[in-house]
Amino acid sequence: MKDILTLRLYSRVAHLGSFSAAAREFGLAQSQVSRMVADLEAGLGARLLSRTTRAVVMTEAGAEFLARMEPILAALEDAENSVRESGELRGLLRVGMTTTMGLRVVMPRLAPFTERHPRLHVELVLDDRWQDMVREAVDVGFRVGALPDSSGTSKLITTIQRVIVAAPSYLDRAGTPLAPADLSHHRIVGGPAATLAASWRFERDGEKVTVDLQPNVSTNTIAGAVACAAGGLGITSTTIWACQQELDNGSLVRLLPEWKTADLPVNAYFPLGRSTRKVARAFVDFIVAELGTDARGATPG
């Protein structure tokens, strides 16, 4: 069991980049954690961590060891959870998602799950780019839109409406587009990966229209694109989840509401081998139940 504790300590130090932070999580002295990880390195005959006065960073060997070792820890935690009669989940659950989905959809609904499983550590990894979930030991990721080809498995949990929005201040200056084609005469705010021309697709009464647009301003986060639009920089296309607060408070208004834009799928994605984790499945089931028809603008998928 001491060896298992050492492996868990190494995992946390590697992810947190800090001996002191890992020590606080486990209720141990920093010197004790440092010594146990050093003993692990000595036993392996390899340096796993590069230590400086400013940071603790995994070496190449350390990253490889972590990638191979963490699934073993996860399997052990699942074995323990499967026989625990109380139904309480313990261990570590790493969940990946976009920043906007984390802040506006998952975090406000998370309290009942953590109260039900007080000894489960839930780590939310927020990133608008597609993560290497295997390398980063993410147990389940929530992603909006098409999934890339991969060796993992996915489960559709809902669909979410895409909307076109702009700030009243921008519309006062530039006018309000009355048809999709009018968008080509406006300033466009692009979100992640939108530095190149994007095609916005619309449909009304069987008529389909595609408008190719070049962003004037772009950002690498969804929240950043919404903030730019709310600041009057132009028109953006985003999900209703990402901008509902701004629509409610009037800092953004919806454009072309009579034109339908394609709903986006929201998938729970399990990296290779992670779909069997009890904690990951339990968390997905919880989110699905929490969303239901409560997710404004979404319809259950």
Rank of each mutant, 00 (worst) to 15 (best):
L48A: 05
M97A: 11
A111I: 11
W130T: 13
G102H: 01
L28N: 02
V56I: 12
V122G: 00
Q30C: 03
R94E: 06
E115F: 11
D127E: 13
A22Y: 02
A63D: 11
V57E: 15
R119Y: 11
L124K: 06
R135W: 05
R47P: 07
L5D: 14
L124S: 01
M97H: 06
A75P: 10
Q131R: 09
S86P: 13
T6K: 05
D3Q: 12
A38K: 06
D132V: 02
D78C: 04
G43Q: 13
E123M: 14
A23V: 00
G87I: 00
A42D: 15
E80T: 10
M97C: 13
K2T: 14
M97Q: 08
V134C: 04
T98M: 09
P108A: 11
L76I: 11
P112Y: 09
S34E: 09
A46R: 13
Q131V: 12
G102K: 03
L92T: 12
M101E: 10
P118G: 01
A14C: 05
L89D: 05
R51F: 05
V57T: 14
N81W: 01
L16Q: 12
A38R: 06
G102I: 04
S34G: 04
E60N: 08
P108S: 08
S34T: 05
A79G: 15
M1A: 12
A75K: 06
A74M: 11
V106F: 04
A42P: 06
E115M: 12
D39R: 15
V95P: 05
T114W: 02
A63H: 03
R54S: 12
W130Q: 14
R135M: 10
